[in-house]
Design a protein around this nucleic acid. Structure first.
Lengths: 345, 345
DNA sequence: TTGTATGCGTTATCAC
DNA sequence: GTGATAACGCATACAA
């Protein structure tokens, strides 16, 4: 009994309920958990006593004896970002459907390795039954040691390691999809702000797919290295140095927004002079006001499929697909248009 | 021992560690928890044994005997919204600082009362030590029964009930602040999209403060009822029916965006013909591209102060202020400008 | 159908 | 400094 307990009322236990109902605690346990058989009359008496006392099952004690917590831990790098906010919500909801809870741990926002370790250790202390990793940056080597001890699913990013299950939106398909759209609008000379594979497991393949598809279908491609999002000004000037270019494809919505700002500063009309595409299509960016064209990932589906996979792993089943690549959809906005039509405009 | 345990390796316990280190479990407990005195030599032996076994404290068993979970429950209506996403992150971080964890429960997104009850009951089962309520909609009557059993802090919205502590951004000050800005730009006939007090504890006082301040300083005010965000078209036509109006104040960024879209559809230049203000100033809406003018709430501060208040309550101290109204800041964008300057433009 | 006894992993209180 | 032992609240195998 620690200092802080002083004065706080103790929660009623099954013993209190049993006492009040005039039965043994076993009977109460059976009534509450619904297992075993109890006489209907006593059942009602117990239920009434529990209600009168305001009894609520103690999940801690229950977990203690059941050796189960019905809890999965979600490690998420930055929960403040709209994508992960949505993802977390979707996962919570689906987990509740399966009778599980989700506790989240973040790397404290900082990028120190010790933070990550502490976060994962916290999850382990809590005896979460499985791990969900939501982070575009955390390399798979970091995850492996934990995946060895706990069923682990990576959500929202491709993961090729055979020991880890993953659910994500197919980046190659998405990048190619946006590229197709740009091509179909009639663009033939296109800039792609490219992210190296090493710096992001999502944006790397995504932009590579964009450039690849464009080239494959005969377009001229200018690749602009865009590892850092702050240098949108540089991208803009680089693009404008090539008058033949009529469209720019960005690796993400955020990159696209930064680019759009820079283009506006330079007096470039979008999509009049230049078409711009993003990637994610989340939040307010796809409202008619901005109308960013891009690829939308099925976040809710990613969340629910991730949790489904976790539950299957927990049940000892093999999930249907070890690596699920979910299809996204093209969101047609107003930042990308046909180059010829715009010149007339 | 349930079915799902089959085949999963059991986590090592202090007894396993004790066995391996050749001591009693009491010694291990002292070493791990850092309480009590242990010989340095044995301490090292225990530590090594624990490391070799990959021992991690079982927070469940610890909570069982300590009668403490070091966990606070956050009930949040819609975690997918940027505001609450940020708030949650801020709270998690501050809680970790104090040695607490935050488990969140959502009303499943649906608006059923039973969902809310279930969410709060789940938190109770988990034996959270305190409650943080983050919901602009949940009326205080709903919270009171829980506040009676658990230290409760309401975050992100004003709360006047004496039994409940609250931390929020001063709505009256914010609404008046934006109004002042609009007045200082030179507007004298202004529309305010007003939300009734009964439908939102945040937007109600906020818009009332806007209208109040405008009138107090001699401006003509047109109040447009805006309970539903979908009717932005109606607001636009209503505003345009009054040619003298040069500015519109919306109750939130989202409302403002909807309005901006409608104005664009009608060919109204912003801020050329009409200035528009929002409220929240979060996410991508304040980037130069959109440049929404509005009031920014100090979300991180709200989050940390909320957790601080929780911890103080837990420590049996009275938080410094029962109701903390934190100051926000004006974010000057490009959607509101001086009416005369724009006519010249 | 109901009650009794045991154990889950940890901390705390004692003796030693 | 160290080691038994008794809780904590619940589920469950078993006895009645």
């Amino acid at each position: 009994m620690t200092d802080r307990d002083r004065g706080r009322p103790r929660n009623p236990t099954i013993i209190d309920v049993a006492h009040r109902a005039g039965v043994s605690k076993s009977v109460v346990s059976r009534v509450i958990s619904g297992r075993g058989s109890v006489g209907e009359e006593t059942r009602q008496r117990v239920l009434r006593a529990a209600a009168e006392l305001g009894y609520v099952v103690n999940a801690v004690a229950r977990a203690m004896v059941a050796h189960r917590t019905y809890t999965v831990g979600a490690f998420v790098r930055d929960a403040a970002t709209p994508f992960y906010g949505h993802l977390l919500t979707a996962m919570q909801e689906r987990a509740a459907f399966h009778g599980y809870r989700v506790v989240t741990a973040t790397g404290s926002g900082r990028f120190e390795v010790s933070d990550e370790y502490r976060a994962l250790e916290t999850l382990a202390m809590l005896r979460v039954e499985a791990l969900i990793v939501c982070s575009g940056m955390l390399p798979s080597e970091q995850i492996l040691p934990f995946a060895a001890r706990l069923p682990t699913v990576v959500a929202g990013r491709p993961e090729t390691h055979p020991n880890i299950t993953s659910v994500y939106c197919d980046e190659a398909e998405g990048g190619a999809g946006v590229a197709d759209h740009v091509l179909e609008l009639g663009h033939r000379e296109i800039a792609v702000v490219t992210v190296p594979m090493s710096s992001s497991v999502t944006m790397g393949p995504r932009t590579a797919a964009m450039a690849g598809r464009l080239r494959k279908r005969g377009a001229r491609v200018l690749e602009i290295p865009g590892a850092r999002g702050e240098s949108a000004g540089a991208w803009a000037t680089e693009v404008l140095r090539h008058p033949g270019i009529t469209a720019v494809m960005a690796p993400s919505d955020r990159h696209a927004i930064a680019l759009l700002e820079q283009l506006r500063l330079r007096g470039v009309a979008v999509p009049g002079q230049l078409s711009v595409t993003g990637y994610d299509a989340i939040g307010d960016l796809t409202t008619p006001l901005i109308g960013l064209t891009g690829w939308r990932q099925p976040i809710d589906l990613i969340g629910s499929r991730t949790v489904d996979a976790v539950v299957q792993l927990l049940d000892g089943e093999q999930p249907p697909d070890h690596h699920q690549a979910l299809p996204g959809t093209l969101v047609v906005g107003t930042t990308a248009a046909s180059p010829t039509a715009d010149d007339i405009d």
